[in-house]
Amino acid sequence: MLYFHPESNTYPYMFIPALTKRRLILLAALFTLFAACKVTLLSSYDETTDKVLSEMQQSTTAFFVKYEVTPSAPELKYGNQSAFYQGLITSSRTLRIRNNAIEKNKPMINMLDLLDDNIRLMDSLHRGKPDGLLAPHDVRLLKSAFETQYTAMFKFIMALKSRAGIK
């Protein structure tokens, strides 16, 4: 019985039998669950993250290419590379703050933390070199690690992009 009873000064829901009430709640819950008709377990694609990460990857690749072409160039000494490291760390932390504000974004936040850690570790390795230069074997290992890391992150970003229907 859903009609209002003005003489008893009561609200209509009080007249709904308990069983019907439960059915209505269940129906409402089901409706809420499926209303959107689309299950979303992860955040949507973020163009800024994609763009900034691409810039970071380009900067890192350029750094390794310079080392491969001119391994002992004075400009590659640690003391002359502070802008490179500061630029990468600034971008990485900016992305971390941005991604932290996005809901359902744990995989990307974890990957950004690992990238930030690796930039810091590469900085430590470079800083510790007596002549200020990374050796070819260092470059080979670092290049492999960073390429793997960026590729993994882009694989994930591409999947988010594809889900959003963006080519």
């Binding site: 690992l114 690796n118 690690a145 993994a152 992150m153 994930f156």
Partner: peptide
């Protein structure tokens, strides 16, 4: 560094 890189793959 290599561990972090591989962990990123797993993530």
């Amino acid at each position: 560094i290599q561990r972090n890189s591989f962990r990123t793959v797993l993530m």
